[in-house]
Design a binder for these strands. Structure first.
Lengths: 345, 345
DNA sequence: TAAGAAAGTGCAATCGATTGCAACCGCGGT
DNA sequence: ACCGCGGTTGCAATCGATTGCACTTTCTTA
């Protein structure tokens, strides 16, 4: 089988950009090259080897766009972070970013690429639909419901391959993965009360879905066990939070003896303000956080908190999504949070 | 101009999937529709409006893959995080994740999408080339040189649209954006010495380029000013770091009086171990970190550290990359870090 | 009023890989 | 010598949008 490269060792190789170029060198048709490189088809072993060798020598990579167009699938999963209520939130929020890191790993392991998009729903009503129908992604993961619950519900009716990180609400139609925030709230309140607190405060904005559920859970327990609890709204940017907490504590530190912080980040700020005031934790004030970020174990005293397993969450998101890509209708996955007792309560 | 929809108000709309479907309804050719939707060409205003209206009514979105294939550009920027030395590093590293968040915003603002990929160079020698030549991205941002300096250099020779976050080395060929780590190291050491320390320790692995430069800068100053400094390698996962630091301090806390932590994350662990040992900061031990993460202001006492402006870094990365996409040859951008004096030194 | 410019559209090729179908080859069986 | 059957390979259509070129109107201008 005489091909240019066989005949002349000094044959100057024109760049091999397409499968057709490669085919010409190998002396076969483009179709055969495609099949050989795909590996799965019925190509003669010798032919395949030759094609693979030439591809290697010429450092050839088939064009993904052409492939995706023809096959009508992209091998890309969209990950979208809606910045609904507090624009600054997720930028600084270790939790979301860590989740994103795990998602990247998980998707890579399953052979998918990840396309990241952050959107501001107020500026772009059409954010989710636009992304889904762009033809660039096979499925989408939504990180956080923000205040977009209704919009997500609408989309869910007509679009299967979507999974959302967030809170589950009775009867909802979109598939969600998340911790049982209400249960988490219960655990936190129970712990505070078991540690001796009776007059509780919840630190955090109860607007976002997840936070509201955490508060509700704590309320359940407080009412049942004859303790009081009040919600103290805070923002999520650390410096604002710090000031808000300081202001609240200055006024009320005598009125309460236990604090449930809506997230570890808030708990850190709180711990600091308490220390500034010279209040002993947990002697004078009990404190429980939420998330169990890596630094939670690093504070002094180490933070008692409610653990969400981020890696497991990422795994669940990807797993459910891939099953939906196969046409399966999946249930939501609600993961039980776990109380991690350290030293603040 | 009679089209089906004009004639019969009950006309049942077949789904409009392609530009050709839309063209048929509008009674024009596909080319005209394409031009009308692209907006920039010379299409009659009435025609354009009609086409736009129909597109809206049928909720039509042109297929991106086809467009990308034809135009040979994707509107997507690849962001790759090489996990070279310490696999766990960037997952937990707030700094990288925050940078990523800003990049997403910055790219979105410029009309690009972001494709994220995390790679383990040891397992995939070809990581960078494969990504670049996949045909899926117009350009690439590499977040962190890790231990892949040489490979990046090789690629840089033949591929313009690449910008790297990391450290600049005399005579290097790839375009980099980053803080002047050596200068940062100097500032840190100067501060420690100004605060009265004479026997310094550098906490962190000097393998990665950036860290090595920080250490080198500190060394310069120490030598010049007659102080001693020793490097203490640590890992980057918080719990390992904690143990390593504890072990080191247990042995050596009498030998040294100032610590330069390679990152704020390390500094946090260190601060905690110091407090466990009952050492007063800054009285018995001075401490300076690096990065100025949001929590740096939240520790007790608040951390003195070297600030890298993450948002400015992200802006610089994107700006340089887009200029390179236009064929410009750009210089590296070295940003001066800034000493932020708080209370640990 | 004719010639020429300008504006608006249609046609058809193109981007590069994939894949159903047809064709081909070689060989054993009859 | 012919048939048939795997095993391989080539052919050509296809995915859907874009764009250079040619063509038709319409508008100017002499």
């Amino acid at each position: 089988m005489a091909t240019p490269e066989d005949q002349d060792p000094n044959y100057v190789t024109a760049p091999v950009r397409t499968i057709a170029d490669l085919a010409k060198i190998a002396g076969v048709s483009a179709g055969t090259v495609s099949r050989a490189l795909a590996g799965n088809s019925l190509v003669n072993a010798k032919t395949r080897e030759k094609i693979e060798r030439i591809a290697r020598e010429h450092d050839f990579r088939p064009n993904q766009m052409a492939s995706k167009l023809r096959r009508q699938k992209t091998g890309v999963i969209g990950v979208v972070i809606p910045l609904g209520h507090d624009r600054q939130q997720q930028i600084s929020d270790t939790f979301f970013m860590t989740l994103l890191g795990h998602l990247a790993d998980e998707l890579t392991a399953r052979g998918y690429d990840l396309m990241l998009r952050r959107v501001i729903p107020q500026q772009d009503k059409d954010w989710l639909d636009r992304f889904i129908r762009s033809g660039m992604i096979d499925g989408v993961l939504v990180i956080g419901q923000s205040n977009q619950f209704e919009r997500i519900e609408e989309i869910a009716d007509g679009y299967l391959p979507m999974v959302v990180w967030g809170n589950h609400k009775e009867g909802q139609r979109h598939c969600v993965v998340g911790a049982d925030n209400r249960l988490g709230g219960k655990l936190a309140a129970e712990r505070l009360i078991a540690a001796g607190a009776r007059r509780l405060a919840f630190l955090g904005d109860t607007g976002p879905f997840e936070f509201a559920a955490r508060f509700a859970g704590a309320q359940d327990v407080a009412t049942r066990m004859g303790a009081s609890i009040e919600a103290v709204p805070t923002h999520l940017t650390p410096d604002r939070t710090g000031k808000e907490i300081a202001a609240f504590l200055a006024e009320n530190h005598d009125e309460i003896d236990g604090i449930f912080a809506a997230s570890d980040t808030i708990a850190f700020s709180c711990l600091r303000e308490l220390q500034k005031l010279g209040m002993a934790v947990p002697e004078q004030m009990k404190l429980v956080g939420f998330d169990d970020l890596p630094i939670a174990a690093q504070t002094l005293p180490p933070l008692t908190t409610i653990r969400q397993d981020i890696a497991a969450g990422a795994h669940g998101l990807v797993d459910l999504l891939l099953r939906r890509l196969n046409g399966e209708e999946t249930e939501s996955l609600i993961m039980p949070p776990r109380l991690v007792i350290r030293e603040t309560a």
